[in-house]
Design a protein around this nucleic acid. Sequence first.
DNA 1: GTAATGACCCGTC
DNA 2: GGACGGGCCATTA
Length: 100
Amino acid sequence: MSTYERIYEVVRQIPKGKVTTYGNVADLAELYGKARLVGYALYQVDKDSDIPWHRVINAKGEISYSPLRRGMDYLQRNLLENEGIEFSAEGKINLNKYKW
DNA sequence: GTAATGACCCGTC
DNA sequence: GGACGGGCCATTA
């Protein structure tokens, strides 16, 4: 569980209106090369949690959807847009502008 | 303890 | 970030 807490703490530090990638989170959490763990950790984050999991995206600047979270897929985008982050037509985020 | 799983990343083509 | 393949490792059953 300590590993997950690392990740959660990093994610919690992401300022509003910014996004970051899994690899970046992994680095900040000192989990170099273990980006999968970040995704796995966020996978079990509950929506009631205070963790802005929606601000974490993949290296391409796109939202990584989960089959298990289908139905909530639109929610992530909605939350980000609600924070002032804009999506391109492809649903991608301009990392040059919004990357943390 | 073994085996399977998973929102991914990176080097190379 | 175009497509492909290999690998990293914690968590769960």
